[in-house]
């Protein structure tokens, strides 16, 4: 017992481990909150599109010496603008528009970073798959600021965003500024993705956005419950993923994603509301249908 406790405390004496745990927890919370909106709006692909699209922003920010978070955020927002532009100005549907924008931004990002890599100490892999063990004090501060903004916005706009994401037409009919709410949602998503880059990288961030909310959706019937349960699950997954990565020398982003994915699998099988096995078990316990 004491051994286990020691094992849990041991990594905490390293300050790099403290910093990465803080970032992992913050990222887990905001990804679950914002990702719930993506899930209920069936816009998972949009999360994927924005996360891949931040890459050229990172490269340009690096070249010009701006804050990487700012460059990535601007590129993320630009990608949503491009998607909307294609969707409204051509007969192309939204999912195709996302596919086009995602791949072209991503390709531009890879090209730019590969060119930069030749002369600079910058590693494409860190952006693609995250590098949470090397977060700096400044990264922790930036992540905390973004997390605070996201959490405050989600709480402040909760009832309006609930209405808008559930029934956009009626929300607009009552006079809610739905264009601004939609834009606000895009900003929230882009901010969250930018904050998550260091932790899991742009390729795997989709998992943190969608899976906690989807898991919680199998467990709870109301949006705020989905968000809160999702956040708790994401934090547990982030922390345990970090420990797995520490003790078994695994890539940390991938470890976090594997833990949250196994949570989803468990909920899928055993959820009291929608679990596959729970339903089968329930059917068996019921008396074989009264034929009378």
């Amino acid at each position: 017992m004491l051994d286990l406790l020691n094992a849990l405390v041991e990594p905490l004496q390293y300050s790099f481990m403290q910093r990465s745990l803080i970032v992992a927890i913050l990222v887990g919370v905001i990804c679950a909150l914002v990702g719930s909106y993506l899930m209920v709006q069936r816009l998972a692909l949009l999360g994927d599109a924005i996360s891949h699209s931040v890459l050229p922003g990172l490269a340009i920010a690096f070249l010009t010496g701006t804050n990487l978070f700012v460059g990535a955020f601007i590129a993320g927002i630009l990608s949503t603008v491009a998607i909307t532009w294609i969707r409204t100005r051509s007969p192309i549907k939204e999912d195709a528009a996302m596919g086009i924008v995602l791949s072209s931004f991503f390709a531009l990002g890879i090209t730019l970073i590969t060119v930069i890599q030749k002369n600079n100490k910058i590693d494409l892999n860190h952006f693609l798959f995250g590098n949470i063990l090397q977060v700096t004090h400044q990264d922790v501060r930036d992540t905390a600021i973004i997390a605070a903004i996201v959490i405050i916005l989600v709480i402040a706009l909760y009832k309006e965003l609930l209405f808008y994401t559930f029934d956009p037409l009626s929300a607009q009919a009552t006079g809610l500024p739905v264009q601004w709410l939609n834009f606000g949602l895009m900003v929230l998503i882009a901010l969250t993705i930018v904050a998550s880059m260091k932790a899991v990288g742009v390729v795997l961030v989709l998992s943190l956005l969608i899976t906690p909310g989807a898991t919680a959706y199998l467990l709870a019937p109301r949006l705020h419950q989905v968000m809160m349960i999702g956040a708790v699950l994401a934090v547990i997954a982030s922390v345990s993923g970090m420990y797995l990565s520490y003790f078994f020398n695994l890539p940390s982003g991938a470890a976090i994603v594997l833990v949250i994915s196994s949570f989803f699998l468990l909920a899928m099988l055993f959820s009291p509301r929608h679990g596959i096995l729970t339903e089968r078990w329930r059917d068996r316990r019921l008396p074989p249908s009264e034929a009378s």
């Binding site: 209920v40 929300a171 019937p221």
Partner: peptide
């Protein structure tokens, strides 16, 4: 989307948001 995670009460209260 009737699969949206909301209860009857959540939906009815939407009428009071404005």
């Amino acid at each position: 989307d009737w699969a949206y995670p909301a209860t009857v009460w959540d939906v009815v209260l939407m009428g009071r948001i404005r």
